[in-house]
Design a protein around this nucleic acid. Structure first.
Lengths: 187, 187
DNA sequence: CGCCGAGTTGAACTGAATCAAGAAACGTGG
DNA sequence: CCACGTTTCTTGATTCAGTTCAACTCGGCG
């Protein structure tokens, strides 16, 4: 599925709109290991993963590397604080697989939102969706056991389970790699 | 500060826009203990707390009551899944103080977003802001100790510290009331 | 063949939960 | 204004889930 059909799932677009929307996105093939942005970059783009997989991560004070979020096919990514508030990004965003990525600049996005009212609706949809995922994740983190969290991951992220390393999943879930290994072994 | 001046902090509004915006919001004085929505309600409103304080909470399988989020002055609240996807709300939203609350229906909000392009910009701002807060909160939950989380709360939420019970704060932070009490006692 | 990253396993330790009592604080009605 | 019950907060003793640190296994791959 490509970007345009993904948008058309949510918003109705006229043929002219389709034309103009697709023209402001830049499409690229990028290799595994490529960084969409790094810590301290000012990142004023939104990215869309059409194919492939990305993750964001950050470092804690004591040097631990923690996965913040995974972005499989049909995900939008940005360093929100950088994109919107113009601050240096706090985390890194790396591609975990060779990927096909669309990108759009903040300024172009703003112009498009003014022109294409359907796109504003679509953009809301994306952000709502992210908000919903995050609030579910927070509930999950609070009083659930490591095992509960892992099984929630299993049901929500089946598609990426085989594609990322154990350590990445563990830090995403807020547990150590050793604990996750034991859970997986079935105690 | 009232709703309109809050909006004007972020978006530029013509006098006519101001007029039309303020007319679609309903302003109410509501008592402490009032529920803006409850679990299983279909809540198709957005609320804005001009004065007072609200919190959302939910129940876990084992019957524990957990605070999801606090909403002090100048916060927007909605049951996102209900507002946007028309599903029953998962949590409760109660006022912790006598409050002045504005509300707007989903349908009216949609109409306003179509008419007032500045409002769409403002709405983005609100959702971006929530997203940012949530992602910081998630980082905080993952590998930080109970004490770290509490001190982060102290710096970010000084204004509500004195206004909510210890138990509410504890479950918000994902720790038990006993632990929080000990932290506060300084070990 | 030997190195290297990724995953597993073991043993000791620890932060926080749990369970159980008390102590304050609060509100309401006499 | 005091007496009462109710709710909120504190403190202690015990238990446990998950971390830490360290060693070991396994499958690639130069």
């Amino acid at each position: 599925m490509n970007l345009l059909s993904y948008i058309k799932n949510i918003a109705k677009l006229s043929p002219e709109s389709e034309e103009s929307i697709i023209s402001v996105f830049k499409k690229e093939s990028l290799p595994k290991g490529h960084y969409l942005f790094k810590q301290n970059d000012i990142c004023r783009h939104i990215f869309f993963i059409e194919k492939g997989l990305a993750r964001t991560y950050y470092h804690t004070e004591n040097g631990r590397e923690v996965t913040a979020w995974f972005f499989p096919e049909n995900s939008f990514i940005t360093a929100i604080d950088s994109y919107y508030y113009n601050n240096p990004a706090k985390d890194f965003c790396e591609l975990l697989e060779d990927s096909i990525v669309y990108s759009i600049k903040f300024s172009e996005m703003e112009m498009m939102l003014d022109k294409e009212s359907q796109m504003a609706k679509f953009a809301f949809h994306v952000v709502y969706d992210m908000t919903k995922q995050m609030s579910e994740f927070i509930i999950n983190l609070k009083f659930q056991t490591a095992e509960d969290r892992y099984s929630a991951f299993l049901t929500n992220y089946t598609s990426i389970l085989q594609r990322v390393s154990l350590g990445h999943i563990a830090s995403y879930l807020g547990i150590t790699q050793e604990t996750l290994s034991r859970i997986r072994a079935g105690k």
